[in-house]
Amino acid sequence: MTKKIALIADVHGNIEALKNVLKDISERQIDNRDIYCLGDLVGYGPRPDEVIQLIIEKNIHSVLGNYDEAVGFYLPTCGCSIESENDRMKTKNSLSWTVENTSDENKEFLRELEEQISLEIEGYQLLLTHGSPISINDYIYENDLEKQEEIVEVLEEDILVFGHTHYPYYKKVNNKLFINPGSVGRPKDGDNRACYCIVEFGEKIDVEFIRISYDIEKVAKEIEQSELLDVFAQVLRTGRDVK
């Protein structure tokens, strides 16, 4: 007997991508109760309210992302990695626009999200968070072995599930499994399709990454017709972060 769950992350206000991903998950006969979201429902994309409402409607478990926190609590910054004045300009534009276009009711929902979820599946202990067990703003990249080893030292669970980087991967480090499902709404790995993953628990753990097509141009044009910066549309088209 095996158990399957679906992991999604970093939707970032992209309702078209989310709808297609959830449709694919449903067609694979995975129940909504077995879908887990690793945060960042909002930011950069044109439909924050619709994304939140769909997550609520489908009763999908979600943790708090750094962008969710910034919008829900009216923080001055999302805590993203800012390396230049251009990055600051992009962050300010996206955050202020998203705050203005997210309802008070949905901001309250974001404020109620937990930073971490612990659960047990088929004898395995999982910790779900947005960035890392240390901080929701912490980036864990696939090749950052030093950071992964530091986390293993404090991680009590068998599996760490997280998002934030928008790069999908899974990796075993000292008998602990790291899983990042990639980004539904804003991939950065060069493949502009929505990304999520399915984890199957049996005698061993199987992780499968799924790429889903959606109407990228529709979302990109909606961004360009809003007061969001056009560069956010280019990220969707290219599947890469545009500097």
Rank of each mutant, 00 (worst) to 15 (best):
F209P: 02
E108G: 03
R28W: 05
K147D: 08
N137P: 02
V11F: 02
I30D: 00
S26W: 06
E208G: 03
N59Q: 13
Y44M: 13
D230C: 09
P181T: 05
Y167A: 09
Y214R: 03
N175W: 08
S213Q: 14
L236M: 10
A220I: 08
E85Q: 12
F109I: 14
E112V: 05
G131T: 03
K188A: 14
K171R: 15
V242D: 10
L236I: 11
I52H: 06
E83N: 12
S183I: 04
L127K: 11
E142P: 08
V173S: 04
I159S: 01
R240K: 15
D241K: 09
H164Q: 08
F109Y: 15
V71C: 04
G79A: 07
K218M: 14
E146L: 13
M1F: 09
V63N: 00
I15G: 03
D144M: 07
S135A: 07
I52S: 04
Y141P: 05
G185F: 06
V154H: 02
I210Y: 02
D241Y: 11
K172I: 15
K147T: 13
C197K: 00
S213G: 10
S118T: 14
F109D: 06
T238H: 06
G239H: 04
K243P: 15
E217V: 08
D68Y: 00
E122S: 14
E50D: 15
S132Y: 00
V235F: 08
E222D: 14
G72V: 10
S26D: 14
I159K: 00
M89Y: 10
F209R: 01
G13F: 11
V242C: 13
L126P: 01
G13I: 08
H166D: 11
I8A: 00
Y67P: 06
V11Y: 01
A17F: 08
T238L: 11
N175P: 07
Q125W: 05
V99H: 00
Q225H: 06
D191G: 04
E57R: 14
H164R: 09
V99W: 01
C197W: 00
I82Y: 01
I56V: 13
V161I: 15
T129H: 00
N59D: 15
E27R: 12
L54S: 09
